[in-house]
Computed example of a mutant assay.
Amino acid sequence: MTKTEIAKAFSDGEFEKTYKFISDNAEWTVIEENRFIGKQAIIKNCEQVGSYFKSVTTNFKTLNIISDGNKVVINGTAEFLRNNKRVSFVFACDVYEFNNNNQIQNITSYCIQTK
Rank of each mutant, 00 (worst) to 15 (best):
M1S: 14
M1F: 10
K3Q: 09
T4L: 06
T4Y: 03
E5F: 05
E5I: 04
I6T: 04
F10K: 04
D12S: 15
D12Y: 12
D12V: 07
G13S: 07
F15M: 09
E16A: 15
E16Y: 11
F21M: 07
S23I: 03
S23G: 06
D24S: 15
D24G: 12
A26W: 01
E27C: 09
W28T: 02
W28P: 03
W28N: 02
V30F: 09
E33S: 12
R35E: 14
R35M: 13
F36L: 05
F36H: 05
G38D: 00
G38S: 01
Q40L: 12
I43G: 04
I43W: 04
N45A: 10
C46T: 03
E47M: 14
Q48G: 08
V49I: 15
V49G: 05
G50C: 02
S51I: 08
Y52G: 13
F53E: 08
F53S: 07
S55G: 05
N59Y: 09
L63S: 11
L63T: 14
N64Y: 05
N64F: 05
I65S: 02
I65N: 02
I66M: 07
N70S: 11
N70T: 06
K71Q: 10
K71W: 02
K71N: 05
V72G: 00
I74R: 00
N75K: 00
A78H: 07
F80D: 08
F80E: 11
F80I: 07
L81T: 13
R82F: 11
R82Q: 12
R82Y: 09
N84D: 15
K85Y: 10
V87C: 08
F91K: 14
F91L: 11
A92C: 12
A92G: 14
A92Y: 15
C93F: 04
D94N: 10
Y96S: 00
Y96P: 00
E97D: 09
N101C: 11
N101V: 07
N102M: 01
Q103D: 10
Q103T: 11
Q105C: 04
Q105K: 13
Q105P: 03
Q105T: 03
I107M: 04
T108R: 13
Y110A: 05
C111V: 13
C111I: 10
C111D: 13
I112K: 11
Q113Y: 12
T114F: 12
K115C: 08
K115S: 11
